[in-house]
Write a protein that binds this DNA or RNA. Structure first.
Lengths: 350, 350
DNA sequence: GATTAGCACTCACAGAGGGGGAGTGCTAAC
DNA sequence: GTTAGCACTCCCCCTCTGTGAGTGCTAATC
């Protein structure tokens, strides 16, 4: 599958034109707009060849050409140059990304919001995965006579809590002891380890003196632990879909929004991807519902550990170069912000 | 403004018909469908009168009549009978509302979701307001050398937390002492009180021995406190809007979704309402963006205290009776669930 | 006096028809 | 190999027209 210089030039022109205009590109338009020194007729011949090779398609016999998914793939892999972000955009991102917060989760959320603003697409973010997070404290505090609040704190500072109702009046001393036993046994374990380990039995032995208290608490403890694993999923710029001609049809827009609203399902479709920046175009997405969309996602890491993901979803006609640059700039900045913290703590507080 | 029996009957028929069909109602249709023993011509005369009185309008000269906002208001105030929910719906609600959770917030969220499912409208919920919530504990636990996690626990079991970075290495004893001082001083105060009180100064005095630690912690403490006040706002069934003929126009659907997406603004428009079930129709909503919508909201209380709000938003053509019944049933059930807890704790856990 | 039949009129809506524009593919000439 | 010319295709927009549902008015009827 060899493309000579001229075919390449034409293909690139068609892709570029179509991406920005959303209109099928004709030979005359092309020859006028890009001065290639060849007549429309010649361009037509080349287009015909490109179509035979699978790079272009027709909507109907007398319409202009539009790029196929194969063309986008080729463009992304071979033709696309990484676009430099405008200083304006960079400044906006730097200014807004970390303002007024120190929490990774907030920053990621902000990043998704900026991403959709800048690209005019729908963006999404997955908050940090915490399975690797190490447990640090377990605290039980009495609330009312027969209810306690359970709190689990991880090394990264994540706190998960639950109110547990007891079947008997709580005894502060007992609660304190159980807190200590739990902390002692689970500290240093990752959340995933804690969930799969057999420590529970050991604790039952150690706390026999507490009566049924342990039996009362442990189910809630395990559930709270499990909840810490829940990855949160944010969507931003949902209504941007209305501005893309591909979704001018109500039914399509509706289907798109409904698909995204079933978050859990959508999530499982994208979460399994490899690391780094991933671009999937049209039917490269396994799921039929995504066959008219392209996704660009990037992962972010802290201290080398995979934390979460940031991405956009939009029509296959997408400014792949720009969007990729924005996402990359955002994830780089997220990573830097939380790396910088180490050496630059003086200015962090207020 | 007196409406005789016949006008009343006609008005009610038109409202009922239009609510379910979304089509302007004509005199012939009306006389055929509802056997009133009068001819279309007579109905036309009555309609004309009703229009003069402001209860009906025209879309254009030769279209049928549609109810005005005044008609809806009259209907809601005088004509509407409270509709009994079908046993099916009741059963669904009872089954799904409290499954697998004991937390008020989750139940409220579930309620909103059920509400939009049953009514096919967009629903929203405001999570419990916690300003009245009484503080119970303040805990500071060291994370790394120079960072601590701060946790504030209220009597209702709500936990709010923040990671605070210190400017110096933390001292566990000092942190423990400060925890105790904070707990001692704030316990028993409501969150609102705590935020406005002058206790801070007292604490500064009491903890002089701790050096700058208190200065380091207090801003974070106050911010965490403030965060506990944040009411959460959930929207459900956003895409239901696509199924209502009033929003068949893309621009309108877009405007609607965008309005709801600017949650904060939307929130301030509805939060100030009185207690109980409130119905606002069309331009009764102060905000222009809501002038084509009706809102039905209900408040829910626990132990007599106002907690939050549940509601739907949709076109003015809405099944006011049914929706009201569903909302009422939901809030009643929320309230009962959390009242029942008192007398029925045996079965709560797992 | 209230009710109704009859009639002229209005307007939205759907479908048919036609012109224009942008595009293609093919052929023959350069 | 390139290009001009041409017939042809198809979408899109506009206009026209018929139809149906509805109204308001008037005069006859109960």
């Amino acid at each position: 599958m060899f493309l000579d210089e001229r075919k390449l030039q034409i293909l690139q022109a068609i892709i570029g034109d179509f991406i920005s205009s959303a209109e099928p590109v004709g030979s005359r338009t092309l020859s006028k707009k890009y001065d290639m020194g060849i007549s429309p007729a010649t361009i037509r011949n080349e287009m015909s060849d490109l179509e035979a090779m699978g790079f272009l398609t027709h909507v109907h016999t007398s319409s202009g050409r539009i790029p196929s998914n194969k063309a986008y793939r080729y463009y992304v892999d071979a033709l696309m140059e990484s676009s430099e972000l405008s200083p304006d955009i960079k400044a906006t991102i730097l200014k807004k990304l970390t303002v007024d917060t120190l929490e990774l989760e907030d920053v990621v959320k902000r990043a998704a919001s900026l991403l959709s603003e800048i690209t005019n697409l729908t963006s999404f973010a997955l908050t940090p995965r915490t399975g690797e997070d190490i447990l640090k404290y377990v605290k039980l505090l009495p609330l009312e006579e027969d209810s306690v609040v359970l709190m689990i704190v991880s090394e990264s500072g994540k706190v998960s809590n639950m109110t547990i109702r007891l079947k008997e009046v709580s005894n502060e001393e007992h609660l304190d002891l159980l807190s200590k036993v739990l902390t002692y046994n689970y500290r240093g374990k990752s959340i995933s380890q804690a969930l799969t380990s057999d420590i529970e039995k050991e604790i039952q032995l150690e706390t026999k003196a507490l009566g049924k208290l342990t039996d009362n608490i442990m189910p809630g403890f395990m559930r709270t632990l499990a909840e810490m694993l829940n990855v949160q999923f944010f969507l931003e710029g949902l209504t941007n879909i209305f501005d893309t001609p591909e979704y001018a049809d109500m039914y399509k827009a509706k289907a798109f929004l409904e698909m995204l609203n079933r978050k859990d399902e959508f999530l499982t479709r994208i979460i399994e991807k490899d690391q780094g920046i991933t671009i999937t175009i049209g039917d490269e997405n396994r799921d039929e519902l995504l066959n008219n969309c392209s996704l660009i996602t990037a992962t972010y890491h802290i201290d080398g550990k995979f934390m979460g993901r940031l991405g956009v979803i939009g029509p296959t006609r997408m400014k792949y170069d720009e969007v990729t640059s924005v996402i990359k700039y955002l994830t780089d900045n997220i990573e830097n912000t939380f790396k910088m913290k180490e050496g630059n703590r003086e200015n962090d507080q207020e």
